[in-house]
Design a protein around this nucleic acid. Structure first.
Lengths: 342, 342
DNA sequence: AGGCGAAGCGCAATCGTGTGCGGCAGCCCG
DNA sequence: CGGGCTGCCGCACACGATTGCGCTTCGCCT
């Protein structure tokens, strides 16, 4: 019997464990002097109440489950930082789970979280969408989705408004004079990717440009995928003069691939990203991108969840606007490549 | 009574809850046909065993607590990714807590983790050191420290070997011809900072260079602190020709401050960092730094903890070597500044 | 002095799960 | 036909905490 329990405190203080419980929780039903004595003794013998026993009775664990793609993705890390900020203040502890973009793994992770009886779930960049329901429903656990695909069946969601932002980036490139603009997407079918691509297509259409299938390729949302996808684009008979990337990591990979071919950004090819990582102003060259308020979105999602847990049945679906940040990775195309297309 | 419990399954299957428990845990004490029937029914009515009840009885929660500075720090994020990788495979779930470099907050976080009865603790960049003992001891919870200060009283630790690496960086700068070399440290008193600074001093001494106090300033381990500290160095009557920074984020901030003054890296001032972030090859210019195997160290620490939890009483203190990575942010000093010092 | 109300504390049930032990069949064998 | 053995299953308790309810005690008032 290693861990010292409430009964050990009771024995040491010569009271019942009920009184100890009340004393430590500050109940008015116990004499202040007795309470003080009990607290002193509990402190002395190193008593730490067990959340297990408590939660079993109270039916609340004061924990929330957070499932992300991978915490190594700086977008997710900042998101979680924002979540921590508000949940911690409210006394909640976070259970972290990674999906690695694998639906099966995501469901396993969610199941583990629910076995630990988290009070609520925050899922970012989830791929399973509706399949959460049969898991969450019987337990009555609320969920708030972040940048999720198909949030239809759910009541609460926080998302970056990718489509207008994607359109704005593309129009920025068109405004610079580009006509052959590529899109490097993501191969996992995230909703954010679909929306950014849609915005890209919208902009092209609005300016009478054709969306050429060979200019829409797929990365993996990380640097490696950006390198690979960009290398493929450079193999084309007529490579693009500008590239809009699903996210900044992809863009960084694309810039590496471009330099590896002896070309320069933005003189030979313009590159734009999405997210505005903490580092995106310090890349070479500084990256044109869309600022996504990551920590803010995490905090917003967490606040929503806490409200629901507090009993406020607010149905809400927030779409946060992105802000185009123009830096040095985008510029007008070279004269000889500007013509002859379209 | 929202959540469906083991008794509900028992009722539905017309057996006792003991039999359900055994059936679901694959005990040989129950008829295979009965077990199959029970499993089918449990599945159908959406039963998810409660880790609370189980842990109360088994005295294991299959969770481990991870306390980091802040998850927004990419070093910590990669560390946690490495931890997740191995703990997940073993069926453990992670409770995440942040200290924000505040000892009091770190202890509060640790207390919360222990109330949830985590089976073990991984603490990265901890500042409280010995004060963990009175918390952990009574509960018998093992801890593995990562890049920690004063790991003396503990049995298990994984650390980057900062001192030789710091010396190597400084000698690299000296080898390039620098004589006025500054160090931008960290104001929180981390052990890693102390060691890197010690390595820096060693190198100076070994080459007969004086360690000038005005060239040792303090940042905060983040970009903002690097900007501030570098700005102060540039105000000196005779600024340094090279700067060794506590970490890459600090170095990135330093490079921003240098550019803000209209100077260039490395032509006017050389900058070196530490960590080798995923981004450090893509900064402008690419950063000379020390590669720290972050995910590997996280995995190593997690494996150590799992071994201890499995009963293997391995006392170990691993020091992982760092590898100097020379990129473009360091170069020989300009002729006029190389002379005239020391 | 006796009665009555309030304050303070303990009893016991409960949450969901695991498990030692005892019981109850059915079967085999003497 | 009876006894013993084996295979399955249920009873009951334990884990650590919370909480409604009842009991004791004490002080105050008449």
């Amino acid at each position: 019997m290693h861990p010292v329990s409430i009964k050990d405190v009771a024995r040491a203080a010569r009271v019942s464990h009920s009184t100890v419980s009340r004393a430590l929780r500050g109940s008015p039903l116990v004499n202040p002097k007795t309470a003080a004595r009990i607290r002193r003794i509990a402190q002395k013998i190193g008593y730490l109440p067990s959340a297990l026993g408590r939660s079993l009775k109270t039916r609340r664990t004061l924990t929330i489950g957070v499932v992300v793609n991978t915490i190594a993705d700086p977008v997710m890390a900042e998101l979680v930082a924002g979540i921590q900020e508000v949940t911690n203040r409210a006394g909640y502890t976070i259970l972290l789970a990674e999906s690695h973009s694998d639906p099966e793994r995501e469901l396993r992770a969610a199941r583990a979280l629910l076995e630990h009886r988290v009070d609520g779930v925050l899922a970012a960049a989830s791929r399973v969408g509706p399949e959460y329901r049969p898991l969450l429903e019987p337990l009555g656990v609320p969920i708030v989705l972040i940048n999720n695909q198909h949030p239809k069946p759910y009541r609460h969601a926080v998302s970056i408004d990718s489509q207008p932002a994607g359109r704005a980036v593309t129009e920025h490139l068109i405004g610079l004079g580009h006509r052959r603009i590529a899109y490097i997407g993501d191969r996992f079918g995230y909703q954010t990717d679909v929306e950014r691509f849609t915005g890209y297509c919208e902009a092209l259409a609005a300016h009478g440009l054709e969306q050429r299938p060979e200019l829409a390729v797929k990365g993996d949302g990380m640097i490696a995928g950006g390198i690979e996808a960009m290398a493929a684009l450079l193999e084309l008979r007529r490579p693009p003069t500008a590239v809009f990337c699903y996210n900044d990591l992809t863009a960084i990979g694309a810039m590496r691939a471009i330099r590896a071919r002896g070309l320069r950004v933005p003189q030979d090819i313009s590159v734009a990203g999405f997210d505005d990582l903490f580092i995106s102003a310090d890349t070479n060259p500084p990256l044109t991108t869309v600022r996504q308020p990551k920590a803010h979105m995490g905090a917003l999602a967490a606040e929503t969840l806490l409200k629901v847990l507090a009993g406020q049945e607010c149905r809400m679906e927030v779409r946060v606007p992105g802000e185009l940040v123009i830096r040095d990775s985008t510029a007008p195309p070279r004269a000889e490549s500007a013509q002859g297309d379209d």
